[in-house]
Write a protein that binds this DNA or RNA. Structure first.
Length: 287
DNA sequence: ATGCCTATTATTAATAGA
């Protein structure tokens, strides 16, 4: 099963690029961010035509998130992050698809630092942390995928010193991300590629893409129950080079398909005998 | 420190993004 996240930077303006990528990559589940469209202008017909069901929460001009599914039905579980009823920004959407809870998020950019936008970012991060903890407590399979607007380490930035005081790289924000991971989440791309330079975003300015002046800010976090199923992870960076592309590239993981426990497994569990370790699979992913 | 580019919204300029 392929789960992907893609900040499309305008779902209507980028619709041909999105449909092209869906047809090529054939992801099972997709989290979209930055729809930049009110609900009534979400291109649901075109997306259905591409073979996907969808739920979305749009907003005029900015923000907006959607979850797409190729086969499994989508049962919406949340349309906003708990913790602030006054927050009207469309940045979180959550659904259950095939037994997996999928949280699609668009964390605030937070620039400029310091200032109210940065404060809002940290508050939003705190609310995400509280909700993430609650999700872990359920013991369910959960993936939190989206544009986190944070480069977790120096390895995730083409020029760390230039970004030191940017809201995407300020120490408070990196600490918030690390604190979230410490709850027990697995950063899927980093897990499989611990030392590789991986970017998911390249600025439109100064030919950033051709110079590979990028940032890794789009992340897929896996609950402990889901992490053992992680098989591959990567970025479809070639899509960033397409005409009229978003400034982000689609970022994806492959999860082993969940299999119901066999009779032998159930028998061992009943007798409290350890299940033999899973056979290690060859990694198929490329970045 | 700022512009570089690209989108949306509203009228050719402002705002936001990262």
């Amino acid at each position: 099963m392929i789960v992907a996240t893609y900040n499309v930077n305008g779902v209507n303006g980028r619709l041909p690029v999105l449909l092209k990528w869906l047809a090529e990559a054939k992801p099972d589940i997709v989290c979209l961010q930055e729809l930049k469209s009110p609900d009534e202008r979400f291109p649901v017909d075109a997306i259905r035509g591409g073979g996907y069901r969808a739920i979305w929460r749009g907003q005029k001009s900015w923000n907006g998130v959607a979850i797409l599914s190729k086969s499994g039905s989508i049962v919406e579980t949340r349309r906003q992050l708990p913790g602030d009823p006054e927050d009207g920004q469309s940045r979180y959407l959550e659904a259950e698809i095939g037994g997996v809870i999928v949280g699609c998020l668009y964390l605030p950019n937070g620039n400029p630092w310091p200032g109210p936008k940065f404060d809002y970012k940290l508050q939003w991060f705190n609310r995400l942390g509280a909700h993430a903890k609650q999700l872990l407590g359920t013991g369910k399979d959960v993936v939190l995928a989206g544009d986190y607007n944070v480069m977790p380490t120096d390895l995730d930035v083409y020029k760390p010193e230039r970004w030191a005081n940017d809201a995407l790289f300020r120490v408070e924000v990196r600490e918030a991300y690390a604190k979230l991971l410490a709850q027990g989440w697995t950063d899927a791309l980093r897990k499989l590629h611990p030392k590789e330079r991986i970017y998911t975003f390249w600025d439109y300015f100064r030919n950033a893409y051709t110079r590979n002046a990028g940032l890794r800010i789009d992340h897929l976090l896996l609950s402990p129950s889901l992490a053992p199923r992680l098989e591959a992870a990567g970025v479809d960076r070639h899509a960033r080079g397409w005409d009229k592309s978003s400034d982000h590239a689609p970022t994806w993981i492959i999860l082993d398909d969940a299999k119901p426990p066999t009779k032998a497994v159930k028998k061992r569990a009943a007798k409290k005998i350890a299940t033999p370790a899973r056979k290690k699979k060859t990694k198929r992913g490329a970045v």
